[in-house]
Lab assay of single mutants.
Amino acid sequence: SEEKKKAKERLERLGASSELARELLDRANGNAEKAERLLRKLL
Rank of each mutant, 00 (worst) to 15 (best):
R10H: 08
E2S: 11
K4W: 15
K5A: 11
L25F: 05
L25R: 02
L24I: 06
L24C: 06
E36K: 06
L14Y: 04
E33V: 10
R22E: 15
K8E: 13
L24D: 00
R27M: 13
R13N: 07
L38A: 08
E36I: 15
G15N: 02
E33D: 12
A28T: 14
E12S: 05
S17P: 05
G30W: 14
E12G: 03
R13W: 12
L42W: 11
R10I: 07
L39T: 00
L20P: 00
S18G: 07
N29I: 03
E2L: 13
A28N: 04
L24F: 03
L20F: 06
L20M: 08
E3I: 09
A16G: 03
A21S: 04
R22C: 13
R22F: 08
A32R: 06
R37V: 08
E2Q: 11
E33L: 13
E9W: 05
A35S: 02
A28C: 14
S1K: 10
L42C: 10
L24T: 01
L43N: 04
K6F: 09
R13Y: 09
A16N: 02
G15R: 03
K5L: 12
R10P: 02
R27S: 06
S17W: 07
S17A: 04
R13V: 06
K8P: 03
L25I: 06
N31L: 05
E9K: 09
L24P: 00
L14K: 03
L11T: 00
L42A: 05
E2C: 13
S18N: 06
N29K: 10
K34V: 15
L38V: 05
K34I: 15
G30L: 03
L42T: 05
R13M: 12
S18R: 09
K6R: 13
R37Y: 11
R40Q: 08
N31D: 15
L43K: 06
A28K: 01
S18F: 06
E12A: 06
L24Q: 01
R40P: 00
K41L: 14
S17R: 03
E23D: 09
S17Q: 03
A28Y: 11
E36M: 14
L24N: 00
L39N: 00
S17K: 03
R27T: 06
R13L: 11
R22P: 00
A28S: 09
E9P: 04
L39A: 01
A7G: 07
R22H: 08
L14I: 06
E33K: 13
E33N: 09
E33W: 13
A35G: 01
S1H: 11
L20C: 12
E33P: 05
E9F: 05
K8G: 07
E36G: 04
R40C: 14
E3T: 10
R40E: 08
A16P: 01
A35I: 03
N31H: 06
R10T: 05
K4Q: 14
E12T: 09
G15Y: 03
R37C: 13
A21F: 05
K6N: 10
S1G: 11
D26S: 12
K5N: 13
L39I: 00
E23Y: 15
R10A: 06
L25V: 06
L20S: 02
L39W: 08
A35P: 00
E12I: 15
A32C: 07
E19P: 04
R37T: 08
R37Q: 14
K8H: 14
K34T: 12
K34H: 13
R40N: 06
E23G: 04
S17V: 03
G15T: 02
L25E: 01
R27H: 07
S18I: 06
R37E: 15
E9H: 08
N31Q: 04
E36P: 00
S18H: 07
A28F: 15
L42F: 09
A35W: 03
K6M: 12
A32G: 07
A35F: 04
E3S: 11
K5I: 12
R27I: 12
A21I: 07
E3F: 08
R27P: 00
A16V: 06
K6T: 10
L43A: 04
S18W: 07
A7M: 08
S1M: 12
K5F: 09
L39R: 02
N29A: 08
L42K: 05
A35Y: 02
L11G: 00
A7D: 07
R40W: 13
L39M: 04
G15F: 05
L20K: 02
G30C: 07
A16E: 01
A28P: 00
G15K: 02
R37D: 12
S18P: 15
E36D: 02
K8W: 15
R37H: 10
R40H: 09
N29L: 08
R10M: 08
G30V: 02
E33I: 10
E19Q: 11
K4Y: 15
D26T: 09
D26I: 13
L11C: 04
E36Y: 08
L14D: 01
G30N: 07
E36W: 08
L11H: 01
A16Q: 02
R37P: 00
L42M: 12
L11Y: 02
K4I: 14
A21Y: 05
K34Y: 15
E19I: 07
A28L: 06
L39H: 00
L14T: 01
A16T: 02
R22G: 09
L14V: 03
R27G: 03
E2N: 11
R27L: 14
R37N: 09
E2K: 09
L24A: 02
R37L: 13
R13A: 13
N29M: 09
E9G: 06
R27A: 10
K4H: 15
A35V: 02
G30R: 01
E12W: 04
R10V: 06
K5P: 06
L39P: 00
L38S: 03
K5M: 11
R10Y: 10
E33A: 14
A28M: 09
K6W: 11
A35D: 00
S1Q: 12
K41Y: 13
E9N: 08
L11Q: 00
K6C: 10
R40Y: 11
E9T: 08
D26K: 14
R22V: 13
K34L: 15
E12D: 02
S1R: 11
E19V: 06
N31V: 06
L14F: 05
